[in-house]
Design a protein around this nucleic acid. Structure first.
Lengths: 205, 205
DNA sequence: ACACTAACCGGAGTACCACCCCATTTAGCA
DNA sequence: TGCTAAATGGGGTGGTACTCCGGTTAGTGT
């Protein structure tokens, strides 16, 4: 199930066009945001619009493909953080990474985290969201167990919050703002220090 | 300057059409979000699309007009809160009001708070954003002076954060989520209680 | 080397959309 | 009641997403 890659080797010309479209889309999304013209991407790639729509049935699918590598890298960093730092620092550092990745590739968050339920068809290849959710979930749980994050927080809310922040900063094209908003959010994720003066000190070994 | 209303009495039929468009837009935005078809709104209002574009040069202008009353009411509530509660509670209650208003009228936040700098023309009648900014600024400053909110926070960031939250919850159409995210954000706005044990006690009279 | 077939292509077509031009209509006033 | 400036909206332009289908080509079997 979930046969995202290579159900059959794909003919040489098809693969060539696929790559061209991907390259053009990467440029276009970077230049004009996630709602760049698909028609224009096809033109730029030197293929007919039908070809684009055949390879990528929805704009969402195209964005997914374009950002797949980046998302993979981001999730890899989550594991690095988890290995290198204590749980709280790992989570918070990763959130900043998330923000940085979002700022570096416009439209990534807006399209990847935005729920796909408005599109009538179910996303079969929604790896990106899945990957990020898994990564976030692990970091959050570990942080919560270590007492570095409030226990009430849900993974979906955490992701919604940081992606909302990245999206907002993107709209205002103010990268510094994302950092400031993230500061506030992170402060809000921390446990209330004065209310539980006992349990927040030790680090579980 | 800033002649937003009635530069000349406006002919009777013009005003009639203006109102019709406004009513149709209100319905359409509620039903299909802020990116409802303007063409459709004109059709629904029984006027030509040119008439719509004459009265409202940009989608933004139409949204501004549609939500003007609601924004006014929201700002009025800010003053009520300021009068009735202590500064911190006033600010936080108002943020929840903000969220509730946003949830009640889809597209309000997304369009009103989204910076207009992508549209080439300057907004001459951007009352809504101005009004909200003013209201938020006052509540925030009072809360900060009373030590109920961290001093580093900027009004623009506060608004960006809460509107991002409302927007995110709107996208997921999950009203409860907005509340949870707001909880986190508000916690992040509060001063670090343990770090400044001295100055947070007295209330400026 | 060649032919055959399924995979693949892309131009042309449909159905939307925002926005504008300008000939026509109409409200308000003398 | 007649005049004129204000207001109208049909229709045009140029853009978008997405689909159909006749033609082309890659890969395979012989």
């Amino acid at each position: 199930m979930a046969g995202t890659t290579a159900r059959r080797p794909l003919r040489a010309d098809a693969r060539r066009n696929y790559e061209r479209i991907l390259a053009a889309a990467q440029q276009a999304f970077a230049a004009h945001g996630a709602d760049a013209s698909l028609e224009g991407i096809a033109r730029q790639a030197g293929v007919g619009s039908a070809t684009l729509h055949r390879h990528f049935p929805s704009r969402r699918a195209l964005l997914d493909a374009v950002f797949h590598d980046r998302v993979e890298a981001l999730c890899a960093r989550a594991q690095e953080h988890a290995r290198a730092s204590e749980p709280g620092a790992a989570l918070f550092s990763w959130l900043r990474d998330f923000n940085a990745y979002a700022a570096a590739s416009r439209g990534l968050v807006g399209s990847l985290l935005r729920d796909g339920r408005d599109t009538d068809l179910l996303q079969e290849d929604d790896d990106c969201k899945m990957m990020i959710t898994t990564a976030a979930d692990e970091l959050l749980q570990q942080a919560q167990q270590a007492g570095a994050a409030r226990p009430g927080i849900r993974t979906e809310d955490l992701l919604a919050l940081v992606s909302a922040i990245s999206l907002a900063a993107e709209d205002h094209d103010d990268d510094a703002q994302a950092g400031r908003l993230l500061d506030i959010a992170i402060e809000g994720l921390r446990p209330h220090r004065c209310e539980h003066p006992t349990s927040t000190r030790e680090t579980f070994s």
